[in-house]
Design a protein around this nucleic acid. Structure first.
Lengths: 260, 260
DNA sequence: GTAGGTGGTTGCAACATATGCACCAACGGA
DNA sequence: TCCGTTGGTGCATATGTTGCAACCACCTAC
């Protein structure tokens, strides 16, 4: 493990919060200003940091590399046109989350027509306790994988609607698997509602989920449920593009077929 | 300058191209496998690298930090709702490029309805010789700044439509400043057409540009010119949101007012 | 106009860390 | 079963990183 590289990465994290002075960076790392300066100079040289008005912030090369990394995900080019059209038809924010390694991560977001932008961010992990996409993926995991996720959940009562015990979440995941879609009815932020459906790969494994999200004031969850036929059909189409034979094809998934 | 940090950043660049084995990374850097491994372990620990099928690729923490960095640009939250609506009205890909430091960089992209995705990438620099957004910004720079850009241009003939001399580019920039909009009529890739207009800050300085891009087969440049009233009005609205008093307000820009 | 404080920066010697070596484990092909 | 390749680790040491002292620029107060 390299201490010097760790320091450099901590600098990137620190300046990503907001632009920082050299002294702030040195203080944050607990090193001499000259040490911080040399690390920052190296990050600048590589495009990972830049200065704006005498303060250090994240460099644009990092941004370009992030886009390059996202472009490498096989799912994204397949799914993206569907997301854009789905968002266009409904006017709400659309998310794609993917199961990567042992995490569920937002990998795409298509903003809705409203001026307000959702706080979700590409690259960030999903909250599997509350988010519709998280639950839509968990519902179809094999038992061992799902239990690993359930173990890591805090079951915090973010809002009055939050699911606050493993038993209750297991029951909800069983319902989701049965009906083929998930929802977040203000479980994390009580003014946000969301519905989601799973995306399958060629082997029928659920590897991602797509959601439609809105402010409750704009679209209560009952109204978002009206999008479900379109949403589940869109997810089926993405799945077919990934090689999935369809709900009546060879069964490899552990749970019931995807039907609204 | 830190050699160790430089190596770590080179690793990130290298694995962003495509997933790489430990041996490939060691070979690329010219170091022992154990050195490469420790650097990779540190990057993984920080979320900047991860392994997929025994190969190293970019980590998702980098992706999240990149989004965080983009979210910090003052312009983006202001402009983004306009871009989404503009794209929605015209159905074509919309880009926002911003003048940052001494570069013009794509900072947002809203995909059009077609299945094909443009090769442009958020975080990458703009080609100021050929791109409509690049020319839309250059046209309004002060003479010294503009000449610095012009000096760095290669004037390569990418297509038959490319501008291939500084004189010809200066003349085109003067026309752009006169009429208030720019276009790319297949100057970089002959099957892509584009129109762009500038965005001003509170002092009337041009700091960004918005473009509408399409495949020539879908929308020849004559058809895209039909979007110009809407595009220039959108850019004026973004500019007013940034504090610009408007074309009839106090004049601080070096060239004529923005009107189609 | 000058002094003092602050922040950015550099040269250099000390030393703490990064490094390569030797070795091990796992895997796949012959 | 054997051999080659690749991923990975412990450790001694070579070297690159580090903090110190000093410098410079800028800003503010007197």
């Amino acid at each position: 493990m390299s201490q010097t590289v760790q320091r450099a990465l901590r600098i990137i994290e620190f300046v990503a919060e907001r632009p920082r002075s050299l002294g702030e960076v040195a203080g944050h790392l607990g090193v001499h200003r000259s040490t911080a300066l040399r690390l920052l100079q190296t990050l600048q040289d590589g495009g990972f940091a830049r200065t704006v008005g005498g303060r250090y912030t994240v460099g644009l090369r990092l941004v370009a590399l992030a886009q390059q990394a996202l472009d490498q995900l096989d799912l994204l080019p397949v799914a993206h046109p569907y997301l854009v059209r789905l968002g266009d038809r409904h006017g709400h924010t659309v998310h794609l989350a993917q199961l990567l390694d042992d995490e569920i991560v937002y990998v795409a977001k298509v903003d809705g027509r409203g001026a307000l932008r959702m706080g979700s961010r590409v690259g960030r992990t999903v909250n599997p306790q509350t988010s519709a996409v998280g639950k839509a993926i968990l519902a179809y995991l094999d038992d061992a994988s799902r239990e690993r996720f359930l173990e890591r959940i805090t079951y915090r009562a973010y809002t009055a609607s939050s699911i606050t015990s493993p038993e209750a979440l297991r029951a909800e995941l069983a319902r989701i698997a049965e009906r083929g879609w998930a929802e977040d009815d203000g479980e994390f932020e009580d003014f946000v509602t969301c519905v989601a459906a799973p995306v399958r790969d060629a082997r029928g494994q659920v590897v991602a989920a797509v959601s439609i999200t809105a402010l409750r004031a704009v679209a209560p969850v009952e109204r978002l449920r009206g999008c479900l036929p379109d949403l589940t059909e869109t997810c089926a189409a993405i799945s077919r593009d990934l090689g999935w034979p369809g709900a009546d094809g060879p069964r490899t998934g552990s749970r019931g077929a995807n039907r609204p």
